[in-house]
Design a protein around this nucleic acid. Structure first.
Length: 262
DNA sequence: ATGGCAGTTCCTAACTGA
């Protein structure tokens, strides 16, 4: 089974690139983030005409996630509330950042973790709180012995190999701070494995490059788009790669797709 | 170092992004 994750930075702007990419790289499931469109306006028919099933959770301007699946998915749900209950989740489902469904007995999750703006800002603490809910959400699924594959834009650089420059804790760069890495580590310690790191241990592999300063050309990127797999799927994984080809196109997303196979 | 982004919106200027 081949699953990809891609933060497309607006599905309407990137639709032709997504269709072309799927033509070259057929996937069982494509997890999308930053679709930036309300559900009623999502361009579902062009994808359905390619033979995919489309599951979406979007909003105007910001955020938005989707699952594009070759086979129909079962038990599709959006946000934390269907798993954690509305009382615990409160306002945290207002931003559309999470969608899940089951295919071939595996639970696939497309996630868009909050950016966090400036380190230690209100948005930064929102990100940490959101990650705590994600931890509980995944724990719930793993407790039910589900096979879990979560892919998406985590907006966290796991370690020093995953960013082009030397970063000191005192730099306080959002995405690299200790509390964020700790929050991600606690998620990993639920029993999930970073699929990319099963196959590649050296640094210098990135999934996001700033649009400014010719960052892509200068190879100044961050690896912030990840797949985490529960033990059985991690064991069964045969590859995990980043496809930088779409990042070279005119008007690209600032993120490249990541592909896992198991 | 002159300036070196992109997407969205009831603010074509202000915001978010990471």
């Amino acid at each position: 089974m081949k699953i990809a994750t891609w933060n497309v930075n607006s599905i309407r702007t990137r639709l032709a690139q997504v269709i072309d990419w799927l033509g070259e790289n057929p996937m069982d499931v494509l997890c999308l983030q930053e679709t930036k469109v309300p559900d009623a306006d999502f361009p579902r028919s062009p994808l359905e005409e390619l033979g995919y099933h489309v599951y979406i959770s979007g909003q105007k301007s910001y955020n938005g996630v989707a699952l594009i699946s070759r086979q129909p998915m079962s038990d599709v749900s959006v946000g934390f509330a269907p798993v954690l209950g509305p009382e615990k989740v409160g306002e945290f489902d207002e931003q559309k950042r999470l969608i899940t469904g089951i295919i071939d007995e595996s639970r696939i999750i497309s996630v868009y973790v909050p950016n966090g703006a400036t380190a230690f800002s209100d948005q930064y603490y929102y990100k940490l709180s959101w990650l705590k809910l994600l931890h509980e959400y995944l724990q719930n699924m793993l407790d039910k012995h589900e096979k879990v594959c979560i892919g998406g834009d985590f907006n966290i650089v796991p370690d020093e190999r995953d960013i082009h420059k030397k970063v000191l804790p005192s730099d306080e760069i959002t995405g690299t701070t200790e509390p964020e890495r700790q929050a991600l580590q606690e998620i990993v310690e639920l029993g999930l494995g970073d699929a990319f790191r099963k196959f590649t241990s050296e640094g210098g592999h990135y999934s996001w490059w700033d649009y400014r300063h010719q960052a892509f050309k200068k190879k100044r990127g961050w690896r912030i788009d990840h797949f985490y797999l529960s033990p059985t799927l991690y064991q069964q994984a045969t590859s995990c790669t980043i496809d930088v080809t779409p990042r070279k196109l005119p008007k690209p997303s600032d993120h490249a797709p990541v592909i896992v196979e198991f």
